[in-house]
Design a binder for these strands. Structure first.
Lengths: 192, 192
DNA sequence: CAAGTTGTGTAACGCTCGTTGCAGTATATA
DNA sequence: TATATACTGCAACGAGCGTTACACAACTTG
């Protein structure tokens, strides 16, 4: 049925994902997306319809290939007692690394939150769902770590951890030491 | 010495501040700033040199007239035991109100953090200083509330409160209930 | 091999942005 | 009152944006 597509969709989405991740939606220009994916505008618009279509694919890819794999140890049937601390220290290392190499940094969705696209209902829902997912995972990590805690205490700890993680992502571009400190505080709080 | 300026600089800055606050730096267009201030581009450029100049003035105005007055009860010589809780509940009310009237919302600096201007060194420094100021104020509120706490515990509490406040500001545009919940959690954490 | 369909490249579109030049107006000083 | 100085309005600039139209190339199917 006609000519075959000359590129791997998945690879193109991943390349675009990095750009959106680094620059946010508004600052990720179509020329930049062309360069990153190696595609011509025509191919992008033919395959994804619009910049927004490519962004949506990138967000899906981000959640499926970046966020959820990272959270997997926290949503297993038997969460290890050290899983949450490992998650936090892993995040800390990732943020510190990103700070050094000035590459991808923070969270794609947070980095995009300043853009008018964040006002879009679909994006809002994605962000809210994502936050709930994160919070639920952290809560499971909390109860694995502190099986003695009351449900109310576990809830509070989960809320605090979630806020600390989000603050870390928010701060990493503008005040990296504070971002790392947030994650340290989260680890600290877990055992007090 | 020539013609006198036909407008109050302070009023113009305040009007521009609202626009930057609501839309962030990048999305605050010069035409929008003209409308808000009632000034022509010429007057803006003559008085402030550039959009950036007006933004810098707006940030100063924001810190001087919005942030610091709100923090004042927390930096007094004798901080009242309920000062921090009052601050947090006041913030909660303000965010809830902004959610209803879809007006000014969140924090000017957070709302601008997605913009490339956040990469500017001067802005980064301002944000880092502002965060340190906020954190110091919250810490004084913590020790007033919990004079029994060890310094390490007070530090931890202050870090947690700071993160919760920042998360609230980050979330308010995209997931308002979660933002309010952050502040509730902060109050909750203070007495546990 | 021919026909039809699909992907790719080039070029341009219309729009908005921040910024600037310049003429004109109003005011303070001499 | 004359003159120099400072503010304002109008119009346009050049650049970048996301998007589209159209011709051409490549490949599958009959």
């Amino acid at each position: 049925m006609g000519r075959a597509q000359g590129f791997e969709t998945e690879l193109a989405v991943r390349a675009a994902r990095e750009v959106f991740w680094r620059d946010g939606y508004a600052e990720a220009s179509v020329p930049a997306l062309e360069r990153a994916t190696g595609l011509n505008r025509s191919s992008i618009y033919h395959a994804f319809g619009s910049k927004r279509g490519l962004f949506d694919a990138a967000v899906q890819s981000y959640l499926d290939e970046v966020v959820r794999p990272r959270l997997r140890p926290l949503v297993a049937d038997d969460v290890a007692p050290g899983a949450l601390v490992e998650y936090l220290t892993g995040l800390r290392a990732a943020l510190a690394r990103a700070d050094e190499v000035q590459g991808t940094s923070g969270c794609l969705l947070v980095n995009t939150s300043g853009s008018p696209i964040a006002a879009d209902d679909a994006v809002r829902r994605t962000v809210a769902d994502y936050r709930a997912e994160l919070r639920a995972a952290l809560r499971r990590g909390v109860v694995a770590r502190r099986p003695d805690a009351t449900p109310a205490d576990a809830d509070r700890l989960a809320d605090v951890c979630t806020a600390l993680v989000i603050s870390a992502f928010t701060l990493v571009r503008v005040d990296p030491p504070s971002a790392l400190h947030c994650l340290d505080t989260a680890v600290d709080v877990l055992d007090h």
